[in-house]
Design a protein around this nucleic acid. Structure first.
Length: 625
DNA sequence: ATAGGGTTAG
């Protein structure tokens, strides 16, 4: 049945129906699901309002908007309208854009053109939203042409959307050109160009524009904060969050979420707790993104119990919230709990996504659950019908490599359908070192240096592999290559926060103002360790040094300096929290276990990949890392 | 109507 919606019959009287019309519109706006929409639609059929363009427009717009609506329902409605007006076309274009069907939006636009439907101010913003991917650069350029041709080149919403679309297509220069030529700029124009620079990793330009803009709102600040956090400038991000509050801008969920991610990277639990308090005090509505941020922050800051509290309190947990707690449990070595929640998640009817697989696989990697890991890897395809990604193959190879199954790990890498990247090979190289397979290690090491010639760690590990094989000349040659190209190894560093002040130590670093006191403390610790039959494990240390020099070098590892400082400056029984940027070495691990027993201290150490919780002489990792 | 946030193998 075709409804002649734009030609109301004479019996339909607008004037007397205005109240019911307003009621219908407000009912539509209150709909929370498709059933609600269908009920209002049914009423419209009864009252005749289904012939009213205004009501139909609203009906269409609500039906086409996720998450309440349903695009196919909207589509069937739309197809029954004899000649839809611009608003209705726009609503459909927006629906396709918002539902992640950009092609649908573009096809609709082409039909709109061939039907000679006039554009209005809303058309291009909706349409450009569909072009936010580098693969749509061609369409974006053509739409830009249309914008000029149809006279929307000076319309600010359209211009802003165009800047955003160019940025999302990876064309920051084009975005800038549109920005420079814009006849007027509002706060959105500025925020869009800042985001364009952030997304193309030009943080300095982004910051320059941020400083230049005449007025900033919470979006401007959040764009900058999240940009800094994703570039690894986490301290700067926190500084900006602080500045924003001084400026009197109230942070909303997005601002808090971005800041939490900076806290998580730093392990800045005090600031993280402050944000959590701020959320509760100001009754900021937590969405799943914010919950994810809180869980991640607590987990990465060493407080997995608090992360679990947030997780359990979360209502209607989406897949990301489950994934966040699984990956949190993984880095704490609590693989059994991770597996438990992974199965609970599926009982609730949620399907794991590729990130969930990475999280649950890494839980198996850190705990050495080889069989469970193999089964989970196989399930990606057999149960979930998805193809494993580089991350998943990497996890599998790492799982096998760490467990000493080096040949199997190599087979995974040799036969995987994706070309392995440096991260995957790096994990295997490390496994060769730990499990003493210099033959395989040498091959992998050489390959890695070719792939990643600017990465100091690749040379260091490769030289170590040669050293472990007794090929000292080759080891020296690799180190020579590194020197020749003046490639620096990332220096090991550890930090500890005492009374809110972060103290950072580097290996062999003497710059701390209390360094003599720290060395004195370490000498006393060493004596106690020797009484317990400790001997430094210098065997793995492949420096060109005599054994006693090696002992001094190893005793100056950054985590040891941080622990000595922590013992000096905190009360007995206070837990020491150390953050290290690299994987902890064998000797430091042994020593920390002993210190936890001798001094009766709990020591929590976050290394590059996971947590070690030392207490009474044992570590939560079970000496497997 | 247009702009900002989270979970990912080392």
């Amino acid at each position: 049945m075709q409804l002649a919606l734009l030609a109301p019959t004479k019996s339909f009287q607008y004037n007397t129906d205005i109240p019911s019309r307003a009621l219908t519109v407000s009912q539509l706006e209150k709909c929370t699901n498709l059933d609600g929409i269908k009920q209002v639609h049914a009423n419209m059929l009864k009252t005749g309002l289904v012939l009213d363009p205004m009501c139909v427009s609203r009906l269409l717009s609500v039906s086409a908007s996720p998450p309440t609506g349903d695009l196919s329902y909207a589509r069937s409605l739309f197809e029954r309208i004899a000649s839809p007006n611009t608003f209705m076309w726009n609503a459909m274009v927006r629906g396709y854009s918002d539902c992640g069907e950009p092609e649908g939006a573009l096809i609709l636009y082409i039909h709109m053109l061939s039907d000679s439907v006039p554009h209005n101010f809303h058309t291009f913003p909706f349409l450009l939203k569909a072009c936010c991917d580098p693969s749509f650069i061609g369409e974006t350029l053509q739409i830009h042409n249309h914008i000029v041709k149809f006279g929307f080149g000076t319309e600010i919403f359209t211009v802003n959307s165009l800047i955003h679309a160019y940025a999302a297509c990876g064309r920051v220069e084009s975005a800038r050109l549109v920005f420079d030529r814009a006849p007027g700029r509002d706060i959105v124009t500025w925020n869009s160009i800042i985001d364009a620079y952030v997304k193309s990793s030009e943080l300095e330009m982004a910051y320059q524009m941020f400083k230049e803009m005449p007025e900033k709102n919470v979006v401007s600040w959040t764009t900058m904060i999240s940009g800094l956090a994703s570039a690894g400038s986490n301290r700067e991000a926190l500084r900006l969050f602080h500045e924003m509050q001084i400026e009197g801008i109230e942070p909303d969920a997005a601002a808090l979420g971005s800041t939490l991610s900076a806290c998580a990277s730093l392990g800045a639990i005090e600031q993280g707790r402050y944000i959590h308090m701020h959320i509760e005090r100001n009754k900021i509505k937590t969405d799943s993104m914010l919950e994810c941020g809180l869980i991640d922050m607590y987990a990465k800051s060493g407080d997995i119990e608090e992360a679990l509290k947030v997780f359990k309190k979360s209502k209607r947990k989406c897949i990301s919230v489950w994934t966040a707690i699984i990956s949190g449990l993984a880095i704490h070595g609590q693989a059994r709990d991770a597996l438990y929640w992974y199965s609970e998640m599926q009982k609730e009817g949620l399907k794991p996504n590729p990130i969930t697989f990475t999280a649950i696989l890494s839980a198996c990697v850190y705990a050495g659950l080889v069989e469970e890991g193999r089964i989970l890897f196989a399930s990606i395809k057999s149960v979930h019908g998805l193809s494993p990604s580089m991350q998943h193959y990497g996890c599998l190879a790492d799982l096998l490599g760490r467990a000493g199954l080096l040949q199997e790990a190599k087979e995974v890498i040799d036969t995987m359908p994706i070309k392995p990247n440096a991260i995957v090979l790096g994990a295997l190289l490390k496994a060769c070192l730990i499990h003493g397979n210099p033959e395989l290690g040498k091959v992998i090491g050489k390959k890695l240096i070719e792939m990643d010639p600017g990465h100091g760690g690749r040379y260091v590990h490769t030289a170590s592999v040669f050293g472990a094989a007794g090929e000292w000349e080759e080891a020296a040659r690799v180190r020579g290559m590194m020197k020749e190209k003046s490639i620096e190894k990332l220096p090991g560093s550890s930090n500890i926060t005492i009374n809110g002040i972060v103290h950072e130590f580097f290996a062999g670093d003497n710059s701390h103002p209390c360094i003599e006191e720290i060395h004195g403390m370490w000498n006393r610790v060493s004596k106690r360790l020797e009484e317990e039959e400790y001997r430094p494990e210098v065997g793995n240390l492949l420096l060109d040094l005599e054994d006693d020099e090696k002992e001094i070098a190893i005793s100056r590892h950054s985590e040891k300096l941080a622990i000595a400082f922590g013992l000096l400056r905190t009360e007995k029984k206070v837990t020491l929290r150390i953050f290290k940027n690299l994987r902890v070495c064998e000797d430091c691990h042994t020593v920390t276990k002993m210190i936890s027993k001798i001094y009766g201290r709990q020591i929590i150490m976050r290394d590059k990949t996971r947590f070690h919780e030392f207490s009474n002489g044992i570590c939560s990792c079970g000496d497997y890392w």
